[in-house]
């Protein structure tokens, strides 16, 4: 399996990123190198190994359902690239 320019364009579109043709070429090469390494890992026989979703051998860490104070809206909006008095502001996403 190898990555094509089309794959890079597809993933880039999903991530809302745009690249120049040169950058796309570079990403194709880099992603393929990663996949080549995965091929190497595949040499290992894992048929008897359960798929792993988490590396920590812990489960069911819960918090109780209690409310703690939130942050003041001013703090929350502080890093916003753009805002109104109370809202985050982004370019219109629907017509």
């Amino acid at each position: 399996m190898s990555v094509t320019v089309q794959d890079v364009e597809h993933v880039a579109a999903l991530a809302r990123l745009s690249f120049t043709p040169d950058e796309k070429e570079r990403l194709v090469r880099q992603l393929n190198r990663i996949l080549d390494f995965m091929e190497k890992l595949k040499e290992l026989d894992t048929t008897k190994v359960e798929p792993l979703s988490h590396v920590i051998e812990l489960s069911s860490v819960f918090r109780e359902d209690t409310v703690e104070p939130s942050y003041p809206p001013e703090e929350i909006l502080k890093n916003a690239p753009d805002r109104t008095e109370k809202f985050f502001k982004v370019p219109k996403v629907i017509r």
Binding site: D65, E68, S70, Y71, P73, K86, F87
Partner: peptide, 22 residues
């Protein structure tokens, strides 16, 4: 629930915008 699923902010409906956020 009283609080959100992954943090302790309230789930209360109708608050000032961006006031139940952490």
């Amino acid at each position: 629930t009283e609080s959100k699923v992954f943090c302790s902010c309230t789930t209360k409906f109708g608050s000032e915008p961006n006031s139940n956020v952490c």
